[in-house]
Amino acid sequence: MPEKAMEGLDRRGFMTASIASAGAAAVLASNAGPAKAQDASASGGPRGTLYTGDVVDGKKVVSRLDVDDLAPGQRHLLYFQGVETPTGQHWYVSVTVVKGAKPGKRGVLVSGVHGDEMSSVHTVQTVMNQLNPAEMSGVVTAVTDVSRPAMESMQRRWPNAGRGADLIDMNREWPGNENGVTAVSRHAALLFNRLLRPNADFAIDFHTGTTGFEVAAFNIAGMDAPEVKAMAELYPVGQIFDNHVYPGVLHNAFMDVGIPSFTPEIGAARVLDVKMIDLFVEGTMNVLKHYGVVAGPMGRTGKDVSVFVGNSAFPILAAAGGLVEHLVKLNDKIEAGQKVAVQRNSFGEVVAEYTSGVAGVITGQRSDAMAEPGDPLAFILFNKATQEGVETYPE
Rank of each mutant, 00 (worst) to 15 (best):
Asp166Gly: 10
Ile168Val: 14
Met170Asp: 02
Met170Ser: 09
Asn171Ile: 06
Arg172Trp: 01
Arg172Asn: 01
Glu173Gly: 03
Glu173Ile: 03
Glu173Gln: 12
Trp174Arg: 01
Trp174Ala: 09
Pro175Tyr: 00
Gly176Trp: 07
Gly176Ile: 03
Gly176Asn: 03
Asn177Ile: 05
Asn177Lys: 07
Asn177Ala: 09
Glu178Gln: 04
Asn179Trp: 01
Asn179Cys: 08
Gly180Met: 07
Gly180Arg: 04
Val181Asp: 12
Thr182Ala: 09
Ala183Lys: 11
Ala183Cys: 05
Ser185Leu: 11
Arg186Thr: 07
Arg186Gln: 13
Arg186His: 14
Ala188His: 11
Ala189Met: 02
Leu191Ile: 13
Phe192Arg: 01
Phe192Met: 02
Asn193Gly: 00
Asn193Ser: 05
Arg194His: 09
Arg194Gly: 03
Leu195Val: 09
Leu195Lys: 04
Leu196Ile: 02
Leu196Thr: 02
Leu196Arg: 01
Leu196Cys: 03
Leu196Lys: 00
Arg197Glu: 01
Arg197Trp: 00
Asn199Ser: 08
Phe202Gln: 07
Phe202Leu: 13
Ala203Thr: 01
Ala203Pro: 03
Ala203Phe: 08
Ile204Val: 14
Asp205Pro: 05
Asp205Trp: 03
Asp205Lys: 01
Phe206Gln: 06
His207Ser: 05
His207Gly: 05
Gly209Ala: 12
Gly209Phe: 06
Thr210Gln: 03
Gly212Ala: 08
Gly212Gln: 08
Gly212Asn: 10
Phe213Trp: 12
Glu214Lys: 12
Ala216Trp: 08
Ala216Met: 12
Ala217Gln: 14
Ala217Trp: 12
Asn219Lys: 15
Asn219Glu: 14
Asn219Thr: 14
Ile220Phe: 14
Ile220Thr: 15
Met223Tyr: 12
Met223Gly: 12
Asp224Phe: 11
Asp224Ser: 15
